Computed example of a mutant assay.
Amino acid sequence: MTVQWPQTTAAAFGNDLIYATHDLHKRDVFSDEGIIRILDEFPRDQLAIWKFGGHSEGLGESIRGQAPKASGAEIMEAVRSGKFWLNVRRSNLLLDYMAEIGQEIFGSLEDATGRKTRKQDMGLLISSPGIHVNYHLDIPIVALVQIRGEKTLWLYPNDDIHAPADQIEDIVHMRREEDLPFRDGFDDNAIKIDLKPGMALTWPQAAPHRVQNADCVNVSLSCEYMTLPALMKANAIYTNGILRSQFGMNPQTARKLTPMNMSKAVAAQALKKITRHKPINKSTPPTFELDLSAENYARPL
């Protein structure tokens, strides 16, 4: 089966939340031994390690770490007993056996939607019991495949209230991380999804969301991708960011692929070559090293 999308996927794609089922959680590669192997073989300098603060209003706390010396087994022990969120980014591009799984997932999406997927990035998410992932959005489209554990995802509308245009533009221009300020009233407009192994879903591009793990280790596949319309919308947002930051304009948010936004997407290609605008490095520097001998398994750097 791999991933089974509903027959209505093509019609709903890009506009609605779409649920699917899968059997990937039954594979040995996602056992403890399999995940330890992945962690040992994956380039350690590309492993994303984060600690998040508790859920509250405003911009959530995010602290980045690193684990240059810890073994895969030690990292898994820290995840089980501590409060860590890991992303084995681009696992489909860096590990051959993960590439095969990525081909299955992205192939299933292409078959179901009738659209070619581009810029495929399959991240393996490994996270601690009870951890909360801050309110944020992703510029690529995301398909989330739940492998182990249970968690709740809240999905919010992609509009100016929940995701202001200037903040999305800053994300596209790499002036900030993907986290956004949260307000308690946002939950009134959220779709709440309880995820269990064997479930998968994909949602409209750049829809904000947050995640709360149950009291168990969680393993998921976060499959980021673009379609041609999604790429054009992202490029239109890029142009809007320049119009706002350099020319003081207040452009309309590029949430739909209108003729105007198609023109902006074309303009972005030229602007990227000729503009003097330089993206600010948004990368948060690591401030701790994962260390089982340290308090809370995090040694300050």
Rank of each mutant, 00 (worst) to 15 (best):
I63C: 10
Q46T: 04
R255N: 08
N261Y: 02
A10D: 00
A206D: 08
W5P: 01
D138H: 14
R276Q: 12
L301D: 01
G123K: 07
L109Y: 03
I237A: 10
W50F: 15
D166W: 06
M1P: 00
P157I: 05
A236I: 00
D32E: 14
R210F: 11
I274V: 15
R118I: 14
D187V: 11
M249D: 12
A112C: 04
A11K: 08
N158A: 14
I126V: 13
G72L: 02
G34A: 10
S71Q: 00
P164S: 06
K119A: 13
A190L: 05
R115K: 10
I63R: 15
P68G: 04
N189Q: 14
Q212K: 13
P68H: 06
I147M: 12
K282W: 15
F247G: 01
V211G: 12
R183P: 07
P208V: 09
R210A: 13
T117N: 09
I35S: 01
V79R: 03
H209C: 03
E169I: 06
G72W: 01
S56L: 07
F106C: 09
M76K: 03
S263I: 10
D121N: 10
I101F: 11
G107W: 03
N213K: 08
T2L: 00
E61N: 01
L271F: 06
K278I: 08
H277L: 10
L17Q: 06
W154M: 10
S31V: 06
V3W: 05
H162E: 13
I280K: 15
S263V: 03
M262T: 11
Y19V: 02
I36R: 06
T117G: 04
I161H: 09
I101Q: 06
T239Q: 02
I101W: 10
G14S: 10
Y97D: 12
